[in-house]
């Protein structure tokens, strides 16, 4: 995935079954953000793979004061890339019965 300066990783091991997964997001390179970034730390949140869209979560982060409005897109993209990877992995390795 493209280096957006925002890192998103699984906060817990993916069992391949749950639609809702825990993710952790933090800023690796604040220079890649447009808005001024206040270093808050790593933000952990749950994401529903079936019902939610990454851009929606990014917008909630903006509204919660973690990021500037102008960075919603880059945060959304970072989450989207990680979610796509998780879905891809799940498709390749279905959970055992």
């Amino acid at each position: 995935a493209e280096d957006t300066g925002v890192r998103v990783e699984l906060a817990e091991e993916d069992d391949g079954r749950k639609a809702s997964i825990a993710l952790k997001l933090w800023v690796e390179d604040p220079r890649k953000l447009k808005g001024k970034y206040k270093d808050a730390g790593a933000i952990e949140f749950t994401f529903d793979l079936e019902k939610e869209v990454p851009e929606g979560v990014a917008q909630e982060m903006v509204e919660s004061g973690f990021f500037h409005e102008s960075d919603a897109k880059i945060v959304g993209k970072s989450i989207r890339d990680r979610v796509a990877l998780i879905k891809w992995r799940r498709a390749r390795t279905p959970p055992s019965a």
Binding site: D29, A40, F45, T46, E60
Partner: peptide, 27 residues
């Protein structure tokens, strides 16, 4: 480290904790 919790009006919970220095890029 200390963790804080921020709850968005839509109900989502964000748990914020310090990032280990080893996970940050060199400036």
């Amino acid at each position: 480290g200390a963790t804080t919790q921020v709850v968005h009006s839509a109900g989502r919970r964000f748990i914020v904790s310090p990032v280990p220095e080893s996970r940050l890029k060199e400036p």
